[in-house]
Design a protein around this nucleic acid. Sequence first.
DNA 1: ATGAAAGCGCTAACAG
DNA 2: CTGTTAGCGCTTTCAT
Lengths: 339, 339
Amino acid sequence: MATGPMATVRDVAAMARVSISTVSRALSAPDMVNEVTRQRVIDAARELDYRPNPAARGLRVGKTNNLGLLIPDLENPFFASVTKGVQSRARAAGYAVFVADSDEDPAQEIELIGNLATQVDGIILASPRAPSQDILDATAGKTVVMLNREVGDIPSITIDNADGVLQAVSHLRALGHRTIAYASGPVHSWSGEERRKGMVAVAEQFPDLTVVQLGNFRPYFSGGYPAADIAVASSATAVIAYNDLMALGIIDRLRQRGISVPDDMSVVGFDDVPVASLVSPALTTIQIPLAGLGRRGVDLLVERLEGAVDVTTRSEVPVELIIRNSTSVPAASPAASTP
Amino acid sequence: MATGPMATVRDVAAMARVSISTVSRALSAPDMVNEVTRQRVIDAARELDYRPNPAARGLRVGKTNNLGLLIPDLENPFFASVTKGVQSRARAAGYAVFVADSDEDPAQEIELIGNLATQVDGIILASPRAPSQDILDATAGKTVVMLNREVGDIPSITIDNADGVLQAVSHLRALGHRTIAYASGPVHSWSGEERRKGMVAVAEQFPDLTVVQLGNFRPYFSGGYPAADIAVASSATAVIAYNDLMALGIIDRLRQRGISVPDDMSVVGFDDVPVASLVSPALTTIQIPLAGLGRRGVDLLVERLEGAVDVTTRSEVPVELIIRNSTSVPAASPAASTP
DNA sequence: ATGAAAGCGCTAACAG
DNA sequence: CTGTTAGCGCTTTCAT
């Protein structure tokens, strides 16, 4: 760093009275060097608090041992959790991670991919917002894995959106709901589209159900307000939101209008971000193992970096319905019998 | 990166038919090179999508242009926001940032400081948990700035905790509260101690007030439960929590026990994390400019890195009371007149 | 088992 | 204005 001049191989070599190559070996190839010499080097290294300069090593070896993580917004608890998972797994695997926040800006994303690429061995793209073609161009020739989205042949880890929607609907249906609303996320959201399609599929699967599409809303708390109003205007007794943040907004708006959740309206979220369990009513939601998603992303990336070329390129993580207090039997439902 | 072999100065030099030093100059020293040659280099560089290898440059120049950020927990919205601020400002200043999450583990912190130090020009320590002496040792000779804590002579940016507490108490007092409880954070928390001391000072300042110290609680949602129970057992009509998360827990526990907030008990948080405005009742809290804290941290660090040695070493950012819906006049207060 | 030397990609003297 | 050269700290042949 700035003040204390870092010790280099040369310093250690001098103190241990060996050549610099012996220092290098003693520290990495445990057994290519005489036991006693090695100890001398180790001691000198410790004494000087010597740490190999990663940049220098990287330059020589052609590998930085750094990973890049690109996310749309750190203040979105979804990505905070994913980042946390990436962080810890990367460290365990011996990588440091550059985190870049694109602020939901597709253009920034593309630029950041280029920046990151100069300093890392591989990049994790979490829910990138940019158009597929732009991503394809920007990542050409780079080692990249994608989280929560699929584009082209880029290795990816996604979540089982269809099953999530199915679980949510099944839950609601079992409670007695027959008209269920769905509040979509942004039009261009990949996972949003997946979930919307899932809703359509589920609707076909249950002929006794009426599924009403409320429209597209911003995937934040604020997006829940218009969604709630439209839901109320519909005949739905339950609403599934694109994500937890939106679900929270829906609940808040409902409360403002004197509509009780879950008594008058059931609400289901998606993601199970940490805050979902801290609000009241606690949110029934589809749990995505967010930190796990991050960890698996690192695993996949590291595999491609160090291992075989043809490892599995796409996988999907399961989701699980977490029933809390924002769902119950519909107000005047015949199925509303509490044993 | 992995597949596409990155172009180097040499490639660009070849294509532009100049020497490598001319390439280097054309790209950094705009006017040390002939206009037309320069353009040839620029073109070649663009053609090859050339990007100087930061590691190589860093090695040569003795500056990485990377910053390290160490935080206790990314899933804590406090740090997510700080990180976001650091991120954006660092990028604007031409730095990439390594983010390291210590998982609230003091030992990890010390180790991570050492790891980070090998790859960065400077480090930002956000609310480190380790003992002062350990931090002093680990950062000796390194360029470091600290956020939300002071130790030794390390340059720091803190917040005006005393004023925050004062604003909270004044607000409550104005509403008519006369017995106010304070739920402290962890014993070893620096800011926790600052706020506790602030409460004591405020208590002395207002002779008509009774301040009851509830004890020390975990600075999370869960810590709010015991705090709430003790608050209820006391005669306080309002409680100020160490932070927003704890305040949320207090409110939740109060609700469980059928105690209405703010009607039966007022609650004030601290930090104004994003979720504070999304819950119901929306939390009255002391707002800390969290992202701003991160940005100022970068500014201070970069100043020390690039500028004079004796820039201001300690500063404090102001806080502001945000009045929302978790506070009101006390239940049976004589001051309870709504005009 | 150890040392000498080359070279990763880059910038900064130092010539010219 | 431009080219040659050295060297940042490290690992890795290649000798010995």
